[in-house]
Design a protein around this nucleic acid. Structure first.
Lengths: 195, 195
DNA sequence: CTGTCGATGTGTACACTGCTAACATACGGA
DNA sequence: TCCGTATGTTAGCAGTGTACACATCGACAG
């Protein structure tokens, strides 16, 4: 959706770089993304991306923002599609599934220095947590909300991280979903939640 | 404890590399550890470490193993020093405190590819989780043990990760400990646990 | 004591990376 | 039509991981 013209000018190299970087990430080339590889994939000289991103971290930050938005959308979808009383498990499964489905991007979103203290990235990240917070606010007494909300986030995030790093090794997405359900159900057994 | 002789041979370059790498990590030079920097710090030529480690990942794996052992020791210490009934919170605080105190090493231990599918590293990592598992086994009905154990691990690990990545921003170690206590207490409010 | 050999450290070299600076081209408005 | 600016290219630097050939040391055989 970008290379309409084949001339000297690319058309929309900014977006093309993002797309190229994303496809490289999805191929999971284990080891970090190279700016030059992105340029190659976009069919452009090694330094062309610098016209659109001040440095590599800026490109990575843009990728992370894309990821945050995608994750947020999946959380919202899972929440609204869930059966009554099943929203927590559904959102947890969506969160963990996203991590497992996009390991490199997920790591980038949460582990890379470029996503810290970068206003736009922070905002996109905050938008994700607001989805969680809204769900929590609907069912938890106000006094326990902050701790409960952080706890839920930490729980699913930790689950995602451990899965990504091979500390837990279920077979396939179905087992991931079942594991997530079991863990969330156990941890939220009663605690502050009134289901 | 290594450079006893100043001659051509170093004495114990293997250990010196580890020490140099650790000190570089603790200085938190944001951005990844360079093998050449390790060699420089050890006062040795850029390729000398290759006599003791087949490649960079091997050095990193050795560092990770060191970290796993240290973390395990701190968990055990926290567990045995804790007041009756306070073991969960104490161990959680120790886990999170370790992450916050050694951010670069913690990330290396859990986020780097070199720690996946590497037998010795896996073993050291498993030794950490066994400490958690033992504590869980002491207070949770057998049926819920696996899910509960994974849930506790995910909770503290997620908390550590989120803190390291700037998603939560408490001020100083005391607030970290208090945050951890509040979150763990809330999430373990009752659930499967009989305290 | 001497010679030899393996272990350990050095030097050089290559392909790759992020990034800068100087240059080339093409698009869009005057 | 022409020119300025946005966009892309090329050359080149410093730094990286790593392979290879070489140098040096320590220990042991005779």
């Amino acid at each position: 959706m970008s290379t309409l013209r084949a001339g000297y000018h690319h058309g929309d190299l900014r977006a093309a770089c993002l797309a190229a970087a994303l496809s490289l990430l999805e191929e999971g080339d284990e080891g970090d993304l190279s700016l030059r590889a992105v340029a190659r994939r976009a069919g452009v000289s090694p330094t062309a991306p610098y016209r659109h991103y001040p440095d590599k971290d800026a490109l990575l930050a843009a990728l992370a923002i894309h990821g945050y938005r995608e994750l947020r959308a999946e959380l919202l979808a899972a929440d609204s599609a869930a059966a009554e009383g099943d929203e927590y498990v559904a959102m947890a499964q969506a969160y963990v599934a996203y991590a497992v489905a996009h390991p490199a991007l997920f790591r980038l979103m949460f582990d890379h220095a470029c996503t810290r203290s970068h206003p736009e990235t922070t905002a996109a990240s905050a938008a994700v947590t607001e989805v969680l917070a809204a769900r929590v606010a609907a069912a938890v007494p106000a006094a326990q909300r902050p701790a409960f909300m952080i706890g839920c986030w930490a729980l699913v995030h930790g689950l995602g991280s451990l899965l990504l790093n091979g500390k837990l090794t279920p077979n396939g997405p179905d087992e991931v979903a079942e594991l997530t359900r079991a863990v969330v159900a156990t941890m939220l057994g009663s605690s502050a939640l009134r289901l």
